[in-house]
Simulated assay, not measured.
Amino acid sequence: MEVQLLVAWNLRRLRVERGISQDDLALTAGVERAYVGYLERGARNPTIITLEKIATALEVHIAQLFREPDPGEQEPAILKAGRKKKA
Rank of each mutant, 00 (worst) to 15 (best):
T50D: 06
A43V: 06
E2N: 15
A8V: 12
Y38A: 08
A26P: 04
R41G: 11
A87R: 10
K80E: 07
R83F: 04
L51I: 10
Y38F: 12
I20Y: 02
T47L: 01
W9N: 12
D24Q: 13
T28H: 03
L65P: 06
V31Y: 05
T28C: 03
L25E: 01
V36L: 09
V36Y: 07
W9H: 15
I62R: 01
G30Q: 06
E73F: 07
Q22G: 08
L65F: 07
I54T: 03
V36W: 05
I78T: 14
R41C: 07
D23A: 15
G72I: 05
D23W: 10
R13M: 13
T50L: 02
K86C: 05
E73G: 06
G42I: 01
H61Y: 11
E17F: 09
A87F: 02
P69Y: 07
E52Y: 08
V3F: 13
V16I: 07
Y35G: 00
T28P: 00
K84F: 11
K53E: 08
A57R: 01
I78V: 14
A34S: 14
L27T: 09
D24M: 10
I54L: 15
V36D: 07
L39V: 00
R44F: 02
E73W: 04
V7F: 07
K53H: 11
A43K: 13
L79T: 00
P71R: 09
V16D: 04
A43E: 14
G37I: 01
K86W: 08
R12D: 07
I54G: 02
F66N: 06
E2C: 10
R18K: 15
Y38P: 00
L58I: 00
I20V: 12
V36P: 06
R41M: 09
G37W: 04
Q22S: 06
K86G: 09
A77E: 15
E75I: 13
H61M: 11
V3N: 12
D70N: 12
D70R: 15
R67K: 15
S21M: 04
A8L: 13
Q64L: 12
Y35P: 01
I48N: 11
L11F: 10
A63I: 09
Q64E: 15
D70F: 09
